Simulated assay, not measured.
Amino acid sequence: MTFEAGQLGESGPELASLLRELRKRAGLSEDRLAARCNMSQSKVSRIENGRTRPSLVDVEAILRALEAPPELVAQASALARMANTEWRNLRELRRKGLGTRQAELKGLEASSAHMRYFLLSMITGLLATPEYVRASLAHSPADTSKAVAGKLERQAVLYDVSKQFTFLLTEQAVRWPVVSPLALAEQMDRLSSLSYLPNICIGVIPVGSVTPRVPLNAFTIYDASLVTIETSAGSLVLRDGRDVQTYLKEFAGYEECALFGEELRARLAEWSAACRA
């Protein structure tokens, strides 16, 4: 089954309808299907009515229980993959307003307990100084005033000790000259300062470190439920549990290569001094 990027995340109603039809064809009630899948009847009902987005594992369990024919298994699996994957085009995000995007991110951060950020080439807005935030958006053709304000407002979540943050940055992300050398030194000082907060863990992977794989994109993991992957054209959102686990494993591999604590702060001080020189 082929599909366009614009279809991603929009197949939920079609999937719900197909699963409901397959159950009825099999002559099973919601209760009997739920028992076969080790699910609650209410969950089956929510899936079939489109109120709950089923994971690929849920869909596979339902299809096995229904003994669905191979062609319908393939169709339902493809729809489930599409429902759990969403593409957000950068042009569309700009059309809606970059400030709206900041509100969405704020909502994600409010609903998550542990957030993990892998930063390949730039520093995220949560860690950025105001000057860095403004410079990072300077290339945008859209009005960025609300986005700048939104990024800075979101930083308050860092001081919520009920939440845990882990930031992994490459040396390139820390040292890339997004701002002037003096402003970049201030940005490094901010990273060092934030690394003392009890709920924040900041690590840097120095150039030359041997990593378990070659990173291709920046990504963020929210708890163990959602991953966003940043590209130059937009962002990809993955909700399937197996996809999330893949990125958690990748993140853990990079974590083993990073400098933390006093080693991190010593390296930042060295780079900051070089900028000021």
Score class of each variant (00 low, 15 high):
residue 184 L to M: 15
residue 42 S to N: 06
residue 120 L to M: 13
residue 102 Q to G: 02
residue 112 S to D: 04
residue 65 A to N: 04
residue 268 L to M: 10
residue 274 A to H: 10
residue 202 I to Y: 03
residue 119 L to G: 02
residue 206 P to C: 13
residue 230 E to H: 09
residue 47 I to C: 08
residue 251 F to Q: 05
residue 7 Q to V: 00
residue 188 M to P: 07
residue 236 L to H: 08
residue 230 E to C: 07
residue 20 R to H: 07
residue 131 E to R: 12
residue 41 Q to D: 01
residue 61 A to R: 15
residue 169 L to P: 02
residue 48 E to W: 07
residue 227 V to P: 08
residue 77 S to Y: 00
residue 272 S to E: 13
residue 114 H to D: 00
residue 81 R to L: 13
residue 61 A to Y: 01
residue 86 E to D: 10
residue 36 R to C: 01
residue 127 L to V: 05
residue 122 M to Y: 08
residue 137 L to Y: 09
residue 197 L to G: 00
residue 274 A to M: 06
residue 259 L to H: 04
residue 43 K to M: 13
residue 52 T to N: 12
residue 167 F to N: 05
residue 18 L to C: 09
residue 150 G to I: 04
residue 44 V to R: 02
residue 115 M to L: 15
residue 268 L to T: 09
residue 215 P to T: 07
residue 26 A to S: 15
residue 61 A to P: 00
residue 85 T to V: 10
residue 205 I to L: 09
residue 95 R to G: 00
residue 34 A to K: 12
residue 46 R to N: 10
residue 154 R to K: 04
residue 13 P to S: 09
residue 19 L to Q: 05
residue 143 D to Q: 08
residue 96 K to M: 10
residue 182 L to T: 10
residue 244 V to Y: 09
residue 33 L to D: 01
residue 11 S to Q: 14
residue 51 R to F: 06
residue 168 L to R: 03
residue 246 T to I: 07
residue 118 F to R: 02
residue 159 Y to P: 00
residue 144 T to H: 08
residue 217 N to R: 05
residue 30 E to P: 00
residue 120 L to F: 08
residue 87 W to E: 06
residue 69 P to F: 06
residue 88 R to I: 02
residue 104 E to T: 11
residue 13 P to V: 07
residue 262 E to Q: 14
residue 264 L to W: 04
residue 178 V to Q: 11
residue 9 G to F: 00
residue 240 D to V: 06
residue 131 E to T: 08
